[in-house]
Design a protein around this nucleic acid. Sequence first.
DNA 1: GTGAAAGCGCTAACAT
DNA 2: ATGTTAGCGCTTTCAC
Lengths: 344, 344
Amino acid sequence: MGRASKAPPVTVRTVAAHVGVSAAAVSTVLANRYKERRLAPATVEKIRQAVRDLGYVPNIAGRRLRAHDPGVRQIDLGILTSYEAPLFLVSRSLRQVQRMVDARTTPQRRYSVAIEMFHAGRLREMPGLLNASRFNGVIITNTLPADDAFLGATTLPYAVVVHGRRLPNYCCVLEPPGEAGRRAADIFQGLRRQHCVVLVPELLTQATANRTDGFCAAIRRAGGGEPQRVKAGFTPGSAAEALGRFLRAGGRCDALYCVTDTLALGAYQALKQAGRSIPGDVAVVGVGDHEHAEFFDPPLSCVGPSNDEVVEQVATLLFHLMTHRRVKPTEVLVPPAVIRRASA
Amino acid sequence: MGRASKAPPVTVRTVAAHVGVSAAAVSTVLANRYKERRLAPATVEKIRQAVRDLGYVPNIAGRRLRAHDPGVRQIDLGILTSYEAPLFLVSRSLRQVQRMVDARTTPQRRYSVAIEMFHAGRLREMPGLLNASRFNGVIITNTLPADDAFLGATTLPYAVVVHGRRLPNYCCVLEPPGEAGRRAADIFQGLRRQHCVVLVPELLTQATANRTDGFCAAIRRAGGGEPQRVKAGFTPGSAAEALGRFLRAGGRCDALYCVTDTLALGAYQALKQAGRSIPGDVAVVGVGDHEHAEFFDPPLSCVGPSNDEVVEQVATLLFHLMTHRRVKPTEVLVPPAVIRRASA
DNA sequence: GTGAAAGCGCTAACAT
DNA sequence: ATGTTAGCGCTTTCAC
């Protein structure tokens, strides 16, 4: 936590001193209010030059504190997700939070909702997380194990809801671990499929790991042997490539479980290019995390978290935590929804 | 701009006074540091109770100013988009900004990048926009005309780049108005299609309006008559419904231009359900704003902004503005990219 | 035409 | 075991 450098911070005062004017003059110029203040044009120019020369950057916290209206309570909410996860994954939470925010906004109380991203595995580097100087409440999602470990080792002194993973000491909303995978396996069993494959990203989150393990265990238990795991990245392109390679190498597959819908999208392409029909040759099941899964061709069957339910629990919990603080850690398990569409 | 209310603001001091302790004690409890400070458990409880009773909400600006390390310059960037626009529309800008941020981050200089949303048409209500107390620099996109009007009437005293629309007095990056529509028309002309239809959202942004008008004008000029305009909402579902209704009503269509890819996704479904082949019966062209357009089935031909180029210009301009300030308004026109895929 | 002073809300350091 | 003080950076008001 040591202070970072001995370099003198550049503030309005630094700039003012550099030019030989007062801080007020600098502030006026920065806000483009020098007319009303009737500053000499030459002074204005000198100040502007100094701002550039010194690389001055206004401190937002200072401005905001100053600008703050004591009659209005400003509440900052954040949805924290990794850069590596597709943005649409947080769409639903966002909309739900926004609905609740709209319902609670009054002239005395306003909210801002921001999505902030961290590099997967480096959540700990996010400014203001530890000292509570960024958000009044956050939803954290799409973490990697390194992030989970970091969270497990601290207690953030503000409202935190963890979405999609189980973390001791936090309020979590997630699907029952392994359950979604089991249900997917059931579907394939019902269709009497023999060669189950599971398409997974190389870097597993808790959620994707649970889905994979639950699926494989269920298939094994039913005597279907060990499903093949095909590893891809996070994108449809990488999924198409990975599955295409697998098929060309003679891999057998009449049932495919994709632990994210984004992977399913790529899988569709690979299957079609390989001349396999869906669901005739290969039944495909995803997890329902893509907002447009219904519009894939054929529409994607999904076994995964019941998104509306999850998102409502997450948002409700967040607001509950903000008003009651110090609620004991809870774990809300939302049973997976099974949505049968044409792909299986 | 009047202050909002006479209600007494609840601060740490209010809470402290209410309990009969000092502000420092309250602060300690809020940060869960009461152990090191050896506060009496009873006091801790009383403070916690008061916090709840009074509905105290910490002021983030105050905390942040206090927590701020003078040796580290914190720079806050925002990507401002409407709630109504799909989140993935900002994915590319986000990633590009992040790349540039990563390259510029040093121990003395850190950035945070947030996506903040406003209700379409109500950008003006976003806290901190006008008084520059929220961001050091922003990218604004997906605005409706009401937002454009608001922006046109003010000058925000910090770095602003407007993405995808033309606004006097701002630095804008956009496709040449009408150009994309013309190119789409060209494609259909080349295919000798007779019955052109354009699928549009009911609420037009500057970008979607330009695409529509450019397309219709080009078709008209080529003697193809006035293209039918089919109006939908913003979602694939609404597009499917609108186009389905049009087709069932006997609407003729052998060429379809969708002014957003999200609409194209819904259009695909409607076309397939109506038994029309793509591109055999109907050629479809979108605009390339969906990150997965390549994985639609068939892959979607696009005529629209060259996204990589646009996004690079946007981010570059943003950083340029932040270091040089007061750059005169510029308009960067990025010629549309034409990506022929199987759908046309 | 410009400077000085005050204070937004918070917490760490020091003082009892 | 708790209170007092100082000051983070900024801008507005008032004074000249």
